[in-house]
C-alpha cells in the first residue's frame, strides 16, 4: 500500500519538470540551472548522505568537470556528450586519487583535506591564466548541436531538456545504486564503521568507490553548467559553492535522494526571488536558515514531510 503511494508520488514528482516547461516557459535558463544544481547536490548526497564522508571542498570536482568540458569545447571538440564524458572522467580520476588522502583520517582531517585540496585547485585555476582565463573566466566555449540535431538556443529549450534528461538518467542510476547491496553496505558503514568489516564488507574499497562516483556526478554537473552557459567562471571552484551545496543538502534532508532534489528547488526558488530584492540580505538569511536548520530541523524538508505523513497515518 505505502509502496504504491510512494511509487505514485515519484511518478508525479517527475511530471513536475514537464509541467514547469509549459508554465514557466520564459524561465527555462533558471530551470536548467535548478536541474544542474540538483545533480550537483545529488553527488554530495551520495558521499555525505549515504556514506557519511564530510566534504568541504566538493566544488573542486564540479569545477574540474566544468573546465574539462569547457577546454574540450574551446579547442574544437564541442560535442556535448563527449564533454560530459570528459567531465565525468576527469572528476572521477581526481576523486579516486584524492580519496586515498581524504579517507585516511577522522572527520576533522577529512574536512581540512577536502578544503585544502579544493583551495589548491582554486588557486591553480586562478593562476594558470593562459589555460583557464583566471579571474576573467574561460571564454570562447563553442558547443556543437546535441546529437548533431538540437543546437543550444537563446531560450534555453535545448539546455533545459538536455539537463533534465541527464539529471533523470543519473538520478535513476543513483536510485538503483543506493538500493543495491552496495548502497546498503554504505549505509551500514555510515552507521557503524567498526562492525561492517566483521560482516565481510571491504570498507575502504567501498568508500573509495562511492567517493569516485560522487566526484564523477559532480563533474557531470560542472560540465553541464559549462555547456548550457558556454562559459566557465572561476567561482565554479570557490569555497562558497561547496558551502552552499552543503546547505542545500541539509535543507532538503541528506541521506535521501529526493531530499537533494527538493532542497535544490526550494533553495533556488528562494534565491531567485530574494536575491532580486537585495543580494546582501539574501546571504544573511541564508546563514540564518543554516543556523536554524542545524538547531531545530536537522533532517530537513524530507524529514518534516515524513513526520507529517506518519502523523497523518496514525
Amino acid at each position: 500500500m505505502s509502496r504504491d503511494i510512494s511509487m505514485r508520488a515519484e511518478y508525479a514528482f517527475w511530471l513536475l519538470p514537464v509541467l514547469a516547461y509549459f508554465v514557466f516557459g520564459e524561465n527555462l535558463a533558471l530551470l536548467s540551472q535548478i536541474a544542474i544544481t540538483a545533480l550537483f547536490v545529488l553527488s554530495l548526497d551520495l558521499i555525505l548522505g549515504y556514506a557519511g564522508i564530510i566534504s568541504l571542498g566538493h566544488a573542486a570536482f564540479f569545477g574540474l568537470g566544468a573546465y574539462a568540458a569547457g577546454l574540450l569545447a574551446k579547442y574544437g571538440w564541442g560535442d556535448p556528450l563527449l564533454g560530459l564524458a570528459a567531465g565525468a572522467l576527469v572528476a572521477a580520476t581526481a576523486g579516486f586519487a584524492s580519496s586515498f588522502l581524504v579517507l585516511r583520517g577522522s572527520d576533522l582531517t577529512r574536512l581540512m583535506v577536502t578544503l585544502g585540496v579544493s583551495l589548491m585547485l582554486f588557486e591553480a585555476a586562478n593562476k594558470l591564466t593562459d589555460f583557464t582565463g583566471g579571474v576573467d573566466g574561460l571564454q570562447g566555449v563553442e558547443m556543437q548541436p546535441l546529437l548533431g540535431l538540437f543546437s543550444f538556443d537563446l531560450y534555453s529549450k535545448t539546455a533545459y531538456w538536455y539537463s533534465l534528461a541527464v539529471l533523470f538518467l543519473l538520478f535513476w542510476l543513483a536510485r538503483r545504486l543506493v538500493r543495491s547491496p552496495f548502497g546498503l553496505s554504505l549505509r551500514g558503514i555510515k552507521q557503524n564503521v567498526t562492525r561492517m568489516p566483521a560482516l565481510g564488507t571491504p570498507v575502504h574499497r567501498r568508500l573509495v568507490a562511492i567517493y569516485s562516483i560522487g566526484a564523477a556526478y559532480a563533474g557531470v554537473a560542472g560540465a553541464l553548467l559549462t555547456q548550457t552557459t558556454q562559459f566557465v567562471s572561476l567561482d565554479v571552484m570557490a569555497f562558497s559553492r561547496s558551502a552552499e551545496l552543503l546547505l542545500i543538502l541539509v535543507l532538503g534532508g541528506s541521506g535521501n535522494l529526493y531530499g537533494a532534489l527538493i532542497g535544490t528547488i526550494v533553495f533556488m526558488a528562494a534565491h531567485h526571488f530574494l536575491a532580486d530584492i537585495n543580494p546582501q540580505y539574501w546571504q544573511f538569511w541564508l546563514g540564518a536558515a543554516l543556523v536554524l536548520v542545524v538547531l531545530f530541523a536537522r533532517d530537513g524538508i524530507m524529514g518534516m514531510l515524513r513526520r507529517l505523513v506518519t502523523r497523518g497515518a496514525q
Binding site: 546547505l247 540580505y281 544573511f284 541564508l286 546563514g287 543554516l290 538547531l295
Partner: peptide, 12 residues
C-alpha cells in the same frame, strides 16, 4: 554547517 551559517551572517 552552523558555523558556516554564522560566517554568512557576519559577512552580510
Amino acid at each position: 554547517l552552523f558555523s558556516i551559517g554564522l560566517v554568512f551572517m557576519s559577512i552580510s
